[in-house]
Amino acid sequence: MDLLRRTIVRYVELSDRDWAVIAPRWKEYAFSRGAFISSVGKVEDRFYIVAQGVQKLSFPHDGADICVGFAYGGSWSGEYASFLTRKPARFDVVAVTDSILLGIAHADLQRLYAEMPVMERWGRLIAEEVLVGRATREIEQMSLSAGERYERLVKRSPQLLQLVPQKDIASYLRMTPETLSRLRRSTS
């Protein structure tokens, strides 16, 4: 819960009184590796902050699993679009390693937004951050070479290479597992 407070105050200031209202709405959830946090077709009811572990965001396509992102230490997790729209999720979110997530139910978060301007501001700031993150990734996907995309990942989140199966990393980088392993060998 300490992590929760630290995560929120990265964006907005909280008084102890604010915190006393916010904290009880959040709960800790454990997921063993391989567990589905969200699944395609089901409405996502929670918004999560990652306390521990790595989760992968992917969708099934043509018999393959296309990986579009990872969540880990301190970042957001779950199927955010479904959480916002209340429509069936289009992605699976699966725990790649044993994970502990701090989660809040949709109705509880909406209530906090309605009652506390400071939380509504926080919600807006993270939505903006997610949006900018998506745009950045879109540009990288379109403009960088396979080698450059790999280097970006190594620089930004080196721990993923140890924790996530190669096939998911390769899928995320939009390259074949063979290309990925060649790149790994040539840079190590």
């Binding site: 959830y29 454990a30 997921f31 063993s32 590796r33 391989g34 567990a35 589905f36 946090i37 699966v94 725990a95």
Partner: peptide
């Protein structure tokens, strides 16, 4: 075996 099915959670 949950590890070879869909994992486990709360």
């Amino acid at each position: 075996d949950p590890a070879r099915q869909h994992g486990s959670d709360h």
